[in-house]
């Protein structure tokens, strides 16, 4: 996250930290963010996993404010299922249908348990988003500047505003790279944004009075660059896909 502030996971208790396992016993490497949408399911971005789409290669933590270190109250999960969108594809700049689902379970077969640092996030009503111009929260362990070599160890969050499709499709923004299954969000002064390493993490907007997973960090040109908003998978347009894979509607936080 460029700009914004450091935070505790209690302020974003649906945030999931997804790590890729390493060979030879070295500790896993942070890969991407995600969001807990039901006790057994985390939503993230397909582009995080497309090069290594094997569930055995990943481990998921909930309740982490600090990356790669022990956090009191954290829970660790293996990935029981890894589902990437079947129509995921990459353009020169854009990712399309950039959504993935991870079914999680502990080594003893449990799903997530609620606590001060672990909570589900609501899903939006079908085809419903917050109005353009609304403030939404982004969260992640991603870079604080695109040119940084190191990633921050502590969780960060910030606030960006939803940008209309009309605006985001302007030639000096992203032109035809944008479609209606994506959401653009940016800071009017271009001082804060999601960045490399924040992929898969949540864009949380208030819809009908509830914090709601409106977007999933997907792509963008640079970070906090003028006229180049962050682009997010538009969750409200993937509810049928989510439901078809998770199955039971009652387990979902609509």
């Amino acid at each position: 996250i460029v700009g914004g502030e450091f935070t505790e996971v209690e302020n974003q208790p649906w945030f999931a930290a997804i790590y890729q396992k390493n060979k030879g016993g070295s500790p896993p490497s942070f890969k991407c963010g995600g969001s807990l949408i039901s006790p057994c399911w985390v939503a993230s971005a397909a582009h995080c996993f497309i090069q290594l789409p094997k569930k055995e290669n990943y481990v998921v933590y909930l309740g982490q404010s600090k990356e790669s270190s022990y956090n009191p109250g954290e829970m660790k999960f293996e990935v029981e299922q890894l589902i990437l969108h079947e129509y995921y594809r990459e353009d020169s700049l854009a990712y399309h249908n950039d959504i993935a689902l991870l079914k999680i379970r502990t080594s003893t077969g449990q799903c997530a348990q609620p606590s001060r640092s672990i909570q589900t996030i609501c899903l939006p009503p079908r085809f419903t988003d917050a109005p353009f111009g609304s403030d939404c929260e982004i969260t992640g362990f991603g870079k604080e500047s695109e040119s940084d070599y190191l990633y921050p160890k502590n969780l960060k969050m910030s606030v960006v505003k939803l940008v209309s499709h009309e605006q985001c499709m302007q030639p000096h923004y992203y032109g035809s790279e944008i479609n209606y299954k994506m959401l653009c969000a940016a800071d009017p002064e271009w001082k804060t944004d999601s960045c490399k390493g924040d992929s898969g993490g949540p864009l949380i907007c208030n819809i009908e009075g509830r914090p709601t997973l409106s977007g999933i960090v997907s792509w963008g040109r640079g970070c906090a660059e003028k006229n180049k908003p962050g682009v997010y998978t538009r969750v409200s347009h993937f509810l049928d896909w989510i439901q078809s894979h998770i199955g039971e509607e009652k387990g979902l936080a609509f």
């Binding site: 209690e10 039901s38 006790p39 909570q119 589900t120 996030i121 606030v159 509830r210 914090p211 936080a253």
Partner: peptide, 22 residues
């Protein structure tokens, strides 16, 4: 404003233990 109800596992979507920023 509507609020989510507590599910069978004790989750209440979108509810923070800390005060929301909205």
């Amino acid at each position: 404003k509507p609020s989510s109800s507590v599910d069978q596992q004790g989750f209440q979507c979108g509810q923070k233990a800390l005060r929301p920023r909205f």
